[in-house]
Design a protein around this nucleic acid. Structure first.
Lengths: 343, 343
DNA sequence: TTGAAAGCGCTAACAG
DNA sequence: CTGTTAGCGCTTTCAA
């Protein structure tokens, strides 16, 4: 990367003149057109880009702190919104001046994004894949860092009980007398997901519920395909557990379209990882095991603060409770009539 | 903000020792516990936070460029996801090393977030309110900047034709013989929204369509309330235009619950500002005037590149076409049977 | 109208 | 084990 001095040499002027021109202050400093042009040409020729760190160091602006959130820019991107909301809340509560920057990264390529770490005062790393985790464990970190929804014996982390996330729906289905469950899952991208699934399978088995599993993409379309294949089974299951809201909504659409009545003929529970409204305003409002992402974000932030204050030493893990939210798609306490009308 | 040197003075050591300890390299450099403790205590006492710009300047890591996206962290947050996808696409195409950081900011408080501008090589500012725009117009910018979905005679901008966004649904309704329309809108947060609404009103009037307007919050809940009040009208409208997907989906739920058949008794068109799947997998798939956010993001990025290469001078505006997407909620070319089944 | 020089806060090489 | 020192790239006086 060329510096301002190289531009100066190329243009045959001093570096301060270059700085003036490049910052658009030619007028007030009365730099003649010819000089300006020489400089601009040189800058273009050398493909100059200002070094932002140097500029900032010099300008030395505000004294607020920067927290970076690393988030995978794949199918999980939509969930960033809930996390962000929680984080903003926590920051407001703290009454301190924190700026948030979100750094989207490619799955398995967290290592390529690490330069951003060096420009912040604290970091929360989310969605790390197994490979990304391996990278993280082997790296020394210049800033206080918290991991979201992962386990580590090097970092501070914030988690939920993945076992419960699978056990609760199994128990609800058992309590409601179901014996034949469908399970629509997406490809596991971190160990916790496997835990959820195997926990569901385990508790279903214990309760004498037969389970058949469908693997699909984590999207409404994937869920729709899952729902379609569910319809071809004989006998059809009488209940369905999906590991994401997206898939549940897709599956619901496929089932309704095939004439399956929800919840009368098929009760559905999902892992509540999407926006609340998405669940509430689904064709049939969706019963979920709520993943408290906003609360988790708050916990991440508090952990960062504690880490910085030396109140906590890594590794230290916070685990938040999950809760089952009953809506129309399974056990809806509200009027079943409404649910029927909604089909 | 205290510096490393102040810590050093406080602890009675040199600044390099402080640097070593604070970077967790005490072991390899064999700094004794006592010294470590002195330093840590001093740092804590003075509430030390490293200056990230200085660190970065020194470390001088990768040579990739940083583009910052400023996005309002309110009800518009979910739309960030689509923008981001488009941006990532554009970056991939460019074959250059760009890192994206998203900087969420509070509506009307863009000015407080501007320090982030100084740490990036380019910026796209989105969702600026009128007040934010006023601030922007009066400020000189150190980095190439593009405005998303706004008009300016200072900046480069990327837009759609807001007139069309209102005119198209009016025309579709007219062509389909409707005479009585509902209009659910959220509070205007930038002039373009007013243009969309007044354009719809204008073209509806021209076509002899009576319109009644409901103002609601931009959310599914707001849409639901809008749908509820629609049901109380006499006569009920036979078509509905919503200025956002969220509201349309909420309204649809209210209407279906009230027993209104969609599209037979009520055709719905929305401004397609949400995720495609959300529209496709709504109870009745949603016809929309598609807002090409991904394409707009790409255009923003290309404009940034052109700006940096000197191929373009601000102000320069790019306008992208919008297109009407027919789905079941209005004129669904597909089988009406399916639509009926979905109720 | 332009250049020389100081210095932002930090890290790392090297010297003690 | 710890301190001295150079310098990252930039902006901004101040002097010429």
């Amino acid at each position: 990367m060329p510096t301002i001095r190289e531009i100066a040499k190329e243009a045959g002027v001093s570096s301060s003149t270059v700085s003036i021109v490049l910052n658009g202050k030619s007028e007030e400093r009365k730099i003649p057109q010819i000089t300006q042009k020489k400089i601009m040409d040189a800058a273009r020729k050398l493909n100059y880009h200002p070094n932002v760190a140097a500029r900032r160091l010099r300008i030395q602006p505000s004294d607020n702190l920067i927290i970076a959130v690393f988030w995978a820019s794949d199918f999980r991107a939509p969930m960033m919104v809930r996390f962000l909301q929680g984080l903003q809340q926590a920051i407001l509560k703290s009454k301190k001046n924190w700026e948030v920057i979100i750094h989207p990264y490619q799955n398995n390529k967290l290592n390529e994004s690490m330069q951003a770490l060096e420009m912040c005062n604290a970091a929360v790393i989310c969605n790390a894949s197994i490979q990304d985790m391996r990278f993280l464990e082997h790296r020394s970190f210049p800033v206080p860092t918290v991991l979201y929804n992962r386990h580590s014996d090097k970092f501070c982390t914030v988690n939920v009980d993945d076992n419960l996330l699978g056990a609760i729906p199994a128990k609800v289905f058992a309590d409601r007398g179901h014996k034949n469950a469908g399970l629509v899952v997406s490809k596991s991208v971190f160990p916790g997901m496997d835990v959820r699934v195997s926990s569901f399978l385990l508790h279903a088995e214990k309760a004498g519920i037969a389970v058949r599993q469908i693997n699909q993409e984590n999207s409404m379309e994937g869920g729709y395909r899952g729902g379609e294949s569910l319809c071809t089974w004989n006998p059809m299951p009488d209940c369905l557990f999906c590991t994401s809201d997206m898939m549940a909504i897709g599956a619901m659409k496929a089932l309704l379209r095939a004439g399956v009545r929800i919840p009368e003929e098929m009760e559905i529970i999902s892992v509540g990882n999407g926006e609340r409204e998405l669940e509430e305003y689904a064709c049939v409002s969706l019963s979920v095991v709520h993943l408290p992402m906003e609360k988790m974000a708050e916990a991440c932030f508090e952990l960062v603060l504690d880490l910085m204050a030396g109140k906590v030493e890594p590794p230290y893990s916070v685990e938040l409770p999950v809760k089952y939210i009953t809506r129309d798609s399974c056990g809806g306490s509200a009027d079943q009539e409404d649910a029927a009308e909604n089909r």
